[in-house]
Write a protein that binds this DNA or RNA. Sequence first.
DNA 1: CCCATCATGTCAGTGACTGACAAATGGCAA
DNA 2: TTGCCATTTGTCAGTCACTGACATGATGGG
Lengths: 220, 220
Amino acid sequence: MAPSTAHDGPLGLRERKKARTRDALVDAALRRFTEHGFAATTTEEIAADVEVSQRTFFRYFASKEDAVLAVQEHIEEKFLAKLAARPLEEPPIEALSNALRDTWAELDERTTQTQLLVLRLLEDCPPLLAAHLRRLSEHQDRLVELIARRTGVDPATDLRPRLVAAAFGSVSHVAHVVCHQRGCRGAADLRSTIGECLDELVPALTEPWGTAGPAAPAAD
Amino acid sequence: MAPSTAHDGPLGLRERKKARTRDALVDAALRRFTEHGFAATTTEEIAADVEVSQRTFFRYFASKEDAVLAVQEHIEEKFLAKLAARPLEEPPIEALSNALRDTWAELDERTTQTQLLVLRLLEDCPPLLAAHLRRLSEHQDRLVELIARRTGVDPATDLRPRLVAAAFGSVSHVAHVVCHQRGCRGAADLRSTIGECLDELVPALTEPWGTAGPAAPAAD
DNA sequence: CCCATCATGTCAGTGACTGACAAATGGCAA
DNA sequence: TTGCCATTTGTCAGTCACTGACATGATGGG
């Protein structure tokens, strides 16, 4: 359940305390939101759980939503690193897809559980979804830059980096929604759903649809 | 500049007054947001411009953001209608692309200008963007239903309607961003940018990228 | 051991948004 | 026209997210 914001390194006492407070706030927010709902929870309650003032809560997070969404930073950073590590010969969409698979391949079960929990929250809480989508769009802007650099095209004149980043981003969002809809429970479920979505995108766009199902029908 | 919420039909005096008030509120919001910025404008000021109370403002719009985003309803409805009118033989992504072209093809210059203005607001105002993205995601859910029905597949088991709707949605959003970036001025600019984005999506995903630019290089 | 730095608490204030009630206004029928 | 009902609106009070300013206390370096 805890956020696990990898804080190793030689940090001062001060820094470690801050990290602990932050983690505790995320934890408390997650718990209260799941138990009583996002709307029914006040930032003061979250702060009280951790025994800090509301003002302190807002020094750690810019908004109530951010306390939950913070758990995604970790994954986003990892993803960018994985992408940078993919061989340059891979076509952009392949590199992105593989980077995403690489990312989820090495997340531990607890992190995955937290993610699934957040996805559930997103689904039945519009303001949370809105904040999440905005984050995603900022993440996509960074993706555009990386893709442009990796392929050597100019994102100001060439639309393709934007298009691929956007398509990819929306597919990974679909994967999340589908995970929630299917009631995925563990890392394995999540990974296979993500894999399916990535695999089916291009065929869905380019191949005729037999009504019987996609090229690789679900084994049921 | 005015919203132009096509209100013809045999409406009572009451309904017409409501429509006028609503339009006036959208109008005032748009004006104040562009002149002083979204954050620096209060809902009370908007209400005062139209000479109604703040409470009335919130009876028309669920949030400050909604007053701007309301101008998109019109287009979304039109788009859904255009999609329904596309021949069933068209593959889904083609039908969506053509429906979007059809939609923008018959919007008048004033509506287009309003849209461009809204796009500009979205770009430099995160909360507005967040609300917009949330709207888009709801719109996409409706798209999924329509696509599934039109192709006869079950959206609960087949991922393709979701994938195509998501990819399409993200591409049209890219088109908007690019329009803003390029400083598109009129309906013609907007239409050609949208066309470009739609045309380049599949090639960007399936064809190798020459660094010289896409299949149809910018004339520059 | 002292001092500069930084995290925190307190307080007051703004502004989005809501429920409840009362007043006014449009629509309709007698 | 008049009277009645439904709907719209204004007012008021309240909640809650979020912020700036200032005071206090802890930390870590010298």
